[in-house]
Each structure stands twice: as C-alpha cells, then as structure tokens.
Amino acid sequence: MLQIKDLKATIEGKEILKGISLEVKEGEIHAIMGPNGSGKSTLAAVLAGREFAKITHGSVKYMGKDLLEMSPEERSKEGIFLGFQYPIEIPGVSMVNFMKTAINEHRKHRGEDPISASDFLKIMREKKALVEIDSALTSRSVNEGFSGGEKKRNEIFQMAMLEPKLSILDETDSGLDIDALRVVANGVNKLKRDDSATIVITHYQRLLDYIVPDVVHVLFDGKIVKTAGKELAIELEEKGYDWIKKEVDSE
C-alpha cells in the first residue's frame, strides 16, 4: 500500500528526514516511536502533503501512485487520513457542515452524488456511537473550545466518518488521560479493516497496550534505526531511548 524509499526532507535548510525507507501493507498496523525531535511529526506531515518541509530525495508510492505528486486534498480523497497532533480550530464552521463538505468531496471524487441529509445524519449517529463521542461536540464549531481529549476523539470520529485506507495518527495519545486513551484506541481497533492500514506515531508505549502493532519502528535523528515486532515497544518502555542512542553511536 505504502512504499517509502530513502526519503530525505529539509525544513528551512536543515535536514530533518535523512533517508527513510518503510513499507506498509494492507491490514497492518505500524508504530513509529522515537524521542522528541527525531522527525516523527515531519514524516506524518510530509505524507499528508504539508509543504513546510522540502523533499530533497527519495520517493513515496501509495497504491501504486506517486504520492508526492498529489495535492493534500487528493491524498485525502484517495484514502489518506492524518490524525493531527494539534487539531486546528475553525471558528464559525460547524462540525456537521465541515464533515458534510468533506464527505461530499470524497463522494464527488468517487463519482457519487452528494449524500442526503438523512443518510448523513444516520451515519453520523452510528460513528459517534462507535467512537463514543459526545453528541454535543458535533453541533459545535470545528474543535473550537474543545478540551485536548475532545479534540483527539474528534479526530477519531472524523477518521470513522471518512473510512480511510491509510490512517496516520500523529501523537494521538499525547495529553490524554487513560479513559480517553482507551476510547481513542478502541475507535482505531474497531475501524480496522483487512484492506486498511494504520501508522501510529507515538512517544510512549502505553498506547500500544491498546493498539497492538504488527511492526514497530524506532525513528532516531531522521532515520529508522530499528524495526521489529511489538516486543520492541515494550523494550523501549523499559529501557528508554538511551540504549538505542548508544547502539546507533557505536555503529
């Protein structure tokens, strides 16, 4: 589904991603872990098409297409979803209106007619129940005045509504209490399909108690320095990132 090859990117002339290669297949959950400043969020942003990072080398293929050629909205409509680390507030725009506009753009892309109001409300009710989101949140403006936890839950709700093929969750667990964490993780697990994949970006192992990854990568200083099964996450939690640093340094 996703093949990243030797991807390098700079921000304001400074190299942040220093040659990343990664392959994600349908049905898989990948976790990308790493200390702060290792390039995790930059990788997520680059995959979603945010242009603050300049790609200097490498390629990204998604469903056989050149991802880097696609606009952010095309990527979305082709099934890529980014759960934001810091979801953006859009005052005055109701969640309902926002979500309906998004869904209709996706439908248009697939050559379908706009969704009827009743179908839309029905789907919204279902997905709200699925991700245990408070009903009142969807009648408010996009993320405006939401608490940290509500914002993150709202991301999962949008993910549920858009049914993406590839979800990239950027530090979705940061700032969440254990209940919120459980809700978010449950949402991700329930939304998992055989033909979809998820990349979970996280600093801590605790989210991985709830979302069990097939593959764990450790990102360090712009490079993937270790790839293994879920046991790697536990090892990281016990030992911290220092031993990885030492390993890297000694190489």
Partner: peptide, 12 residues
C-alpha cells in the same frame, strides 16, 4: 493551518 486541516479532509 486551517486551510491545510480542511485540505487534509479532502476539502479544496
């Protein structure tokens, strides 16, 4: 960032 947020959801 608001525009990008919308873009990421498929909104031009």
């Amino acid at each position: 960032d608001q525009i990008f947020y919308c873009n990421q959801r498929g909104i031009s």
